[in-house]
Amino acid sequence: MSSDTLSDVLHAVRLTGAVFFDVEAHAPWSEASPAGSVIAPQALPSVQHVIAFHVVTEGRCWVATAGLAPVALEAGDIVVFPQGDAHTLYSEAGPAHPVPLDTFARARRSQLPLPVHIGTQGMERTHLVCGYLGCDVRPFNPLIATLPRILHVRDRAGATHGWLSQFISVALAESREKRPGGESVLSRLSELMFIEVVRRHVEAMSPQHTGWLAGLRDEFVGRALAVMHREPARNWSLEELALAAGRSRSAFAERFAELVGQPPMQYLAHWRMQVAAGLLARGAKVSSVALEVGYDSEAAFSRAFKKLAGTSPGAWRLRGGEASTAVRSDAPASNHSLPLAASA
């Protein structure tokens, strides 16, 4: 797998950790987390897409989302919802009917992590650190599109990959001690945690998997992705990309489309627009961005950008990228799509 290519995408989509809750629950309990499209206007209005994650630091619980089997979680587990699905966490006794709380709205004007207490002291206890990451999905985010609806990672003490265990320990300490700068520490830790979870997902993928990550891991397609990301402005031909990949033109084109889900030249055009979006959001002039991503004509670049992003490069630049597209969640919402809710 080309780690540089993955880093390119993670940088381009502006992954950022922002909202955290320190949840102490006593059975029986349930906690409902709404879809990312519901969370963002309340707590993260400047992001396009919200990824939820939960770290179980003590006890056990279940997590359920519409259309998928419930997943049992224990201390040391991390569960991530890359597509922004609504979901419910609950004690083993079964979920009670959630009661809405104005938690996300309060998170914008409170010191984080925000404490949430559920249930009656003395009963079976579960402790969670719940976080919400923001990222861009438009014009083009090949990573989020290829991830499953739920990622579940177990990191027991003494496991081969002990890094996440350290993350859990530090996250727990920061959430409880509320030291100066703790919110920033949790934010950076969350970004690193997400990257590590994605890495483990890639390592665990079977040879039958398809999607952008499968292409990244493939010996031949991965080479082509690497050169496209390294030189997005170059006037690549299909023959040149096939040569870089080490395959014939037809074999390369077939393999790329099979794994990535779109032809190589279409992928290159989309990636150029994502690079352009980042440059525009930082205030670069439209004419210079057009040249930066391989367009001799500003008009041609503007047409291509608007077709993919849904807005003109100038409008994207003025808004810093944030208001160029509505926050979205492609996954279906569950029946528990309420603002973070708790019930005894």
Rank of each mutant, 00 (worst) to 15 (best):
V9F: 13
R14Y: 02
A18C: 06
F21P: 08
E24D: 15
A25F: 11
W29D: 15
G36V: 03
P41F: 00
Q42W: 02
A43I: 00
L44M: 09
A52T: 01
V56E: 08
T57G: 13
G59I: 02
A66E: 10
A66T: 04
A66F: 02
G67S: 12
L68A: 12
I78S: 12
V80Q: 05
P82F: 12
A86N: 04
S91H: 12
A93G: 15
P100S: 14
G119R: 05
L128M: 15
L133Y: 06
I144R: 04
L147I: 08
P148H: 11
R149V: 06
R149L: 07
A157H: 13
T160Q: 13
T160P: 11
G162T: 11
W163M: 14
S169L: 12
R176Q: 15
K178A: 07
K178C: 07
G181E: 10
E183R: 08
E183Y: 08
E183P: 00
S184V: 06
L186H: 07
E191W: 10
E191Y: 05
T210Y: 06
G211V: 06
L216N: 11
E231C: 05
E231P: 01
P232N: 02
A233K: 01
L238G: 12
F256S: 04
A257T: 10
E258I: 04
V260Q: 04
A269I: 03
A269E: 00
W271L: 04
G283D: 03
S288H: 12
V289I: 03
V289G: 10
V293H: 07
D296K: 14
A304L: 03
K307N: 05
T311F: 02
P313Y: 07
L318C: 07
G321E: 06
S324K: 01
S324R: 08
A331Q: 00
A331W: 00
H336A: 10
A342S: 12
A344T: 06
A344V: 09
